[in-house]
Amino acid sequence: MTATPVPTPIGEALKAAFRTHPAGVAIITASTSEGPVGLTASSVASVAVDPAAIVFSVTRATGSAGAILGAATFVVHLIDDEHADLAQSFAVSGSERFTPEQGWAALSTGEPHLPEARAALRCRTIQTVAVGSSTVVIAEVIDVVAGPTGRPLVYLDRRFHALPNDTHH
């Protein structure tokens, strides 16, 4: 059992700084022998287009995070405002997940898929780096499934917020 990290003044200042820096919201899912797993992440970013790659971090390599890290492939769903409640469910341990009412399906490859997500990125891990109590994941994107677009969802000051619809001028 690892000790809970003790917040440092710089760590607390970093958290405060990022609290006011909006981040996109994603739900990451995988299929395991124990069933589907998933979590909410606000750390997803594009890294490269050749090879197509993204990066994200998860806290503690246990539970859903550990299951996703151990899966051969996983799906990163970029979600919109209509999925704010779902993002909250996947952010809290023990919440209801993968119910029919939530709109889940499965890709032909078996991973849980939210067809209503703006985009679903099917990935495989290229590399992981342990940083304190977190793990940074660099993943190759092996398929992109486009979905309908709605009002983008961002995480800011510990809450989900909708952005206005994209307007092209």
Rank of each mutant, 00 (worst) to 15 (best):
V25Y: 01
I27A: 03
I28K: 11
I28Q: 02
S31E: 15
T32A: 03
S33V: 11
E34V: 11
P36D: 00
L39C: 07
T40Y: 00
T40W: 06
A41L: 09
S42T: 15
A45D: 08
A45I: 15
S46P: 14
V47Y: 04
V49L: 14
V49A: 12
V49Y: 12
A53G: 10
I54L: 15
F56M: 02
T59C: 12
A61Y: 09
T62A: 12
S64K: 03
G66Y: 08
G66K: 09
L69M: 08
A72R: 15
A72W: 07
T73I: 09
F74R: 04
V76P: 08
H77N: 05
L78K: 08
L78V: 13
D80P: 04
D80M: 02
E82H: 15
E82I: 11
A84H: 07
A84V: 04
D85P: 08
L86M: 05
F90K: 05
F90W: 02
G94P: 15
G94M: 02
T99P: 05
E101N: 07
G103P: 10
A106K: 11
T109H: 07
L114W: 07
L114C: 09
P115K: 08
A119E: 12
A119W: 01
A120D: 02
A120F: 00
L121P: 14
